[in-house]
Simulated assay, not measured.
Amino acid sequence: MSEKQEFDSRLQAVLRRVYGEQIALASANRLSGGASQETWLLTLSGTGAPDTLILRRAPEGMEATDDSRAIGLPNEARLIRKAAATGVAVPEVVHVLEPDEGVGEGFIMSRVEGETIARRILRDDEYAKAREHLPAQCGRALAGIHRIDGSDVPRIRESTGLAQVEQYEQTYQEIGVCRPIFDLAIVWLKENAPKPLAPLLVHGDFRLGNIMVDEQGLAAVLDWELAHYGDPREDIGWMCTNSWRFGQSEKRLGGFGDVEPLLEAYAEAGGAEFTPRDIDWWDMLGSMKWGIMCMGMYETFRSGADASVERAAIGRRVSETEMDLVNLLEGQRHA
């Protein structure tokens, strides 16, 4: 029996544990993921179960470690279930993998129909109505996320805005490349840090690419592995970061809308009342963070640690974030 056949056999046993012996795994096809985390489309036959499901897994030996920013897939599943209980649109978690099942660490969830590719969401006519609805829908979703009590979920850490500035400054210094606009942005962020708010659960990577969108708008919030306790403005500012507008820079919110409708819906759904200027600092933080991440990805390519074209291509985007930081700093100077 091949390794793939053994994997399929174990996965079928898991599905039968959940749905009964009448279920068979027709196919398991890997969709995406890196070396440490994978996404699979499962097609089932038989009665009493959905036709398709999604498996998120880390193979044995590739689980998130304690020093990782990721909370680990079992904890991600717990947060998704909590999000569903607060009314946030998420996939249904149908099973969390057990160690004795031999499939790795992860969970099986429902398949949500829609689109995650930003270029299509922002440009295709079939998502025109969705783009109108998304700002308010995202505001309501974030209000729900920020209400989640994750106190009983392990490995959710606290990360304030200033702590992230210090973290990424250290990474920048370790990379050892002098890019003056990042030095200036770091100084500005330290000198203009807003008064911190009481930490709430934040998604940590709320943006196009990590939400499922259908023709009516927000269908599901995905990819919760970077959830942590922090300032709720962080999630809003991250979606406003110019890199996540995917070329539609005139629309501050994700390239699809204005931030004001999100802020209004967020407050109406029980979140705090913020103004667009309250998000400016977090917008700057987002561009600084992503730029330094891009530097790090190029460094892994340059060093040979990961010689993939993807790492090199992302590394080239540092210059985009430099221009974003110039524009943001100029905007603050004239504000």
Rank of each mutant, 00 (worst) to 15 (best):
L73E: 13
G291E: 07
F182Q: 11
G217V: 11
E234R: 09
L285V: 06
V153Y: 01
W244M: 13
L201W: 02
D280K: 14
K4S: 11
L222S: 12
L226P: 05
E264F: 00
E126Y: 05
M109K: 07
W290V: 15
E76N: 08
G291T: 11
R56C: 12
R123L: 07
G304H: 06
A163E: 12
Q5Y: 00
P91A: 10
L41F: 02
G144A: 09
V221Y: 03
A267S: 10
M297K: 15
G271T: 09
F107R: 04
G87F: 04
P232G: 10
S9F: 03
Y172Q: 10
L31P: 02
S287L: 02
A70W: 05
I148D: 06
L253P: 00
E166S: 13
G315M: 12
G72I: 08
M323F: 03
A49Y: 00
Y298Q: 15
G209Y: 04
P276T: 11
G139V: 13
V14S: 05
I80T: 13
E158T: 15
A143M: 08
R56W: 05
D124K: 06
N242H: 06
V93N: 02
W244G: 13
G217H: 10
E3M: 12
E174D: 14
D125H: 07
L325A: 08
A220R: 05
L142Q: 06
E225S: 14
E60R: 03
L53G: 08
M1D: 08
N327M: 04
F301R: 07
E115F: 00
C294H: 13
G286D: 06
G247R: 06
L25P: 04
E115H: 07
E76F: 02
Q173P: 04
G304S: 08
R56F: 10
G161A: 10
A307N: 14
M323N: 11
T321A: 06
I108T: 09
F7L: 13
A77Q: 14
G209T: 12
E191S: 09
Q248Y: 03
G34C: 06
N242I: 10
Q12K: 07
E21K: 14
D149M: 03
D67N: 14
G296I: 10
V93H: 07
L253C: 05
P276D: 11
A305E: 15
L329H: 05
Y266N: 07
T300D: 06
A28D: 02
F7W: 04
F274R: 03
A28C: 08
Q173L: 14
M62C: 11
R207D: 11
I121Y: 04
H95V: 06
R333L: 12
G48Y: 12
E320H: 09
G254Y: 00
I108S: 08
W282P: 01
V90G: 01
I279G: 01
L325F: 02
G304F: 04
G217D: 09
S9V: 04
G144Q: 07
R179Y: 07
G237D: 08
D214K: 08
L25K: 06
L197W: 03
A89T: 14
W224T: 12
A313Q: 12
M288H: 01
T43W: 00
I23T: 05
R69E: 15
G286L: 03
Q37D: 13
A185L: 01
K289T: 13
